[in-house]
Amino acid sequence: MSVDTATVTKIASLARIKVSEAEVAAMVPELNGILAWVEQLGEVDVTGVEPMTAVIPNTLRLREDAVTDGGIRDAVLANAPAAEHGFFGVPKVIE
């Protein structure tokens, strides 16, 4: 599978990365080179093989239900580019 300008533009939009037309044009051959290379995986016979789920055999630990965190609003907002009245501020979202 190879990507074209439209696909790269779409992927950039999905990834929320603003790209210029020139950047897209540069990315197309680059991504196609990488994709063509990774596609050699298609030749591996994976019949009956499960996708890896845990690289070291291990299962999920569950924690007890207790309130052990929160109440740290200042720390949460400390690095915010725009914080007001205890909220994060973002450009107005119109629904």
Binding site: R63, V67, D69, G70, G71, I72, R73, L77, H85
Partner: peptide, 16 residues
């Protein structure tokens, strides 16, 4: 481990 209760001050029940 932040509280899941309803109605707190904004961002008061938020962990990192």
């Amino acid at each position: 481990g932040a509280s899941a209760t309803f109605g707190a001050e904004p961002n008061a029940q938020v962990s990192l």
